[in-house]
Nucleic acid binder design. Structure first.
Lengths: 210, 210
DNA sequence: CTGTTTGTTGCACAATCGTGCAGCAAACAT
DNA sequence: ATGTTTGCTGCACGATTGTGCAACAAACAG
C-alpha cells in the first residue's frame, strides 16, 4: 500500500483554472459574493485553499476570470439561435427570447452571479470593460435581426434607427430577465416570453401573427 | 472651560437612525457594499462605530432599513409626476421617463446601491419582500397611466392587457435605467429618454407626435 | 443644584479574511 | 530506478470584521 491512494491529482493549469472558476460561480450562485471566500471556493472545488493563489495571482484575478467566463457563457446561450440565418426572422426572435428568459440564463442563480459582479463595475475598470464587451456584443448580435425585420416590411433600416431599436430591444430583454430571475413565481418563463414577444414585435413593427 | 465644548451631541433616535442610514447609502455609493463596514459608516456619520449597535440590533438590520429607505426615495422621485392627474397623459409619461432615466435616479451611485442590495434578494426573505413591494408599487403606479392611454384611443383596456403592458413598460424602464446608470457616457440621459419615449409609445399605441 | 435617563463612547474579543512561504509529492523524462 | 519539474498542501501571519459590555456624559425633570 505504497502509492495505492494518491493524496491529490495534478491537473493541467487550464483545466484547474476552469474548475476553480466554476466552483467560484457555484458558490456565488448558492450563497452570494460575500460568501465566495478563497476557503469556501477551494472547498467547493475540493482542493487546498492555498492552491487558488498558485493559479491566480490574487483573488480579484479569479473574480475577473469568473465574471468574463460567466458572461461569455450566458451570451452564447442567449444568442446561439439568433445567428442561425436559415430560419425565418420571427422564429429567430422568438427563440432568442425563449433562450434569454428561461433557465438557465434567467434564474435566481444567474441573477445572483450577475448582481454580485455588477456591483463591482462602477469602481473597477477591468470589470467595466467586461460589461461593455458583453453589452455591446449582445446589442451587435441583435442588430442584424432588427435590420432584417425592418427590411422585410419595407421599413427604413438606417443605422441610427437600427441602433435605437437594438437599445430598446436589449432593454426589454434585460428588464424582463431581471424581474423574471428575481421573482420567478410571480413572473414565470412563459409569461415573460409572451410579454417579450409582443413588445419586441411592437418595437419592430412586426405582425403578431408572423 | 467646563462644558464649553461638549464631546458629542445627543440626537433623537429617529434622527440618528436616518443619519446612519444616509451615511450607509453614501458609503455604498462611493465604495460599494463590501466597504460598507460599521466602522466606515460610523466614520462617515461622524460618530463612534459602536453607536450603530445602539440604534440597530445588527448590521443586517441597518442594511434592511437602508434598502427600504433608498427604494422608497427612488420610487417617489420616479413616480411623483405620474400621479398628477391634471396634466395630459402623454406629458405624464414623458415626465416619468425623464425622472426615471436621469440623475439622481439613474446614476452610477444609484446603481451601486441598488446592485449591492439586489444580490441579497435571492437569499434573504426580508430583502425579497422589500423588492416585491417596490416592484409592484411601481407597476401599480404605471397601470392607471396605461389604462388612460389605451382608453384615449378607444383601445380595449381589460385588466390582463393593462397588466401585461405595465410589465413591459416597467421592463423597458428597468433595462434602460440599468444600462444608462452603468454606461452614462455611452448612453446619456437624453438618448435614454428618446428611446424610452418611442418604445413606450409603441407599446401603448400612442402617436409619437402626441 | 441634584438625580435619573439613555444616547454615546472606548476597548476588547473571537472569528474570518487574503496572503506568504517552506516543503511535499505526483507526473514524466531519462 | 532516479532526478527534475511544478502542481499542490499545510500552516502561520497581520489586518479587518461584527459584536459585547462597562463606563461616561448630555439632556432634562424636580
Amino acid at each position: 500500500m505504497s502509492d495505492s491512494k494518491p493524496k491529490f491529482r495534478r491537473e493541467s493549469p487550464e483545466h484547474r483554472r476552469e474548475q476553480l472558476i466554476e466552483a467560484t460561480l457555484r458558490v456565488i450562485a448558492r450563497k452570494g459574493v460575500s460568501a465566495a471566500t478563497v476557503r469556501e471556493i477551494s472547498a467547493e472545488a475540493g482542493v487546498a485553499f492555498s492552491l487558488i493563489r498558485h493559479h491566480f495571482r490574487t483573488k480579484e484575478d479569479l473574480m475577473y476570470a469568473a465574471y468574463s467566463y460567466h458572461m461569455r457563457k450566458m451570451a452564447h446561450l442567449s444568442l446561439s439561435s439568433a445567428t442561425d440565418v436559415s430560419r425565418p426572422i420571427a422564429d429567430r426572435v422568438r427563440q432568442c427570447v425563449r433562450d434569454t428568459l428561461s433557465a438557465p440564463v434567467a434564474s435566481g442563480e444567474g441573477l445572483q452571479i450577475w448582481a454580485g459582479f455588477i456591483q463591482m463595475v462602477p469602481h473597477d475598470a477591468r470589470m467595466k470593460q467586461i460589461h461593455i464587451d458583453t453589452y455591446l456584443g449582445f446589442r451587435d448580435a441583435l442588430e442584424p435581426l432588427i435590420t432584417e425585420a425592418l427590411r422585410a416590411q419595407g421599413a427604413p433600416a438606417d443605422p441610427k434607427t437600427v441602433e435605437e431599436k437594438a437599445i430598446a430591444c436589449n432593454a426589454v430583454l434585460d428588464g424582463l430577465w431581471l424581474e423574471g430571475s428575481m421573482l420567478p413565481e410571480m413572473l414565470p418563463a412563459h409569461r415573460l416570453t409572451d410579454v417579450a414577444e409582443t413588445t419586441l414585435f411592437a418595437i419592430l413593427g412586426l405582425s403578431p401573427t408572423d
